[in-house]
Design a protein around this nucleic acid. Sequence first.
DNA 1: ATGTCGTTCACGGAACGA
Length: 259
Amino acid sequence: MRIATWNVNSITARLPRLLAWLENTGTDVLCVQETKCSDEQFPYDQLRELGYEAAVNATGRWNGVALLSKVGLEDVTPGLAGGPDYEGVQEPRAVSATCGPVRVWSVYVPNGREIDHAHFAYKLQWFEALKAAVAEDAAGSRPFAVLGDFNVAPTDDDVWDTSVFEGMTHVTPAERAALAALREAGLSDVVPRPLKYDKPFTYWDYRQLCFPKNKGMRIDLVYGNEPFSKAVSDAYVDREERKGKGASDHAPVVVDLDV
DNA sequence: ATGTCGTTCACGGAACGA
């Protein structure tokens, strides 16, 4: 079974590439982030033609997540129970479902913006709620994973230049402690292999030729429980998908499982 | 170069988020 996560930065803008990528890779389950569309705008029909059911939590211009599956889609739960509001609203940043033998979450963790911004406190609260919401499945015997854009680089090796990130979000001890808490709950980081260069970056800013210069970060993560992690036969970043015109600023992370 | 994208609002280009 092939499972992947991809922040597409608008599923509408990315649809031709998304459909081609799904066909070419034969992905069974895809966790999508930043759909940037409403439920009405979601391309259910085109995806169904390729054999995918979709579970969607999306409201419009910002955020939005989905799960695409051709191996079943049961017990769909949109949202993060107990999660914080931001400016009075529960943003669409999580959706979970059972896809065949695996229980899966697609998450888009808040960015945080600046360390002293209210969005940063919101990010940390969101992580707390996520840990509480997944604890039971993380400790369970069914293969379980949280996949998505975590907006945190787990270690200094996961950014292209640590000096650039001093005083910035994505690398702070508080954010890394939030990831550590998820690991303590029974999840482990399924680190993909890079297809080129030495580090498995998953995101490169559109600006300043970051991708050609490989000024990237690893912020799209796969956090699996023990039964999931044991079943992993391969994991890689599909950096080819970051190339060329019409690319997202994130590359897909692909995981192959023996389940 | 705050150098790129994507969306919205509203109908060209700014504002916003990432």
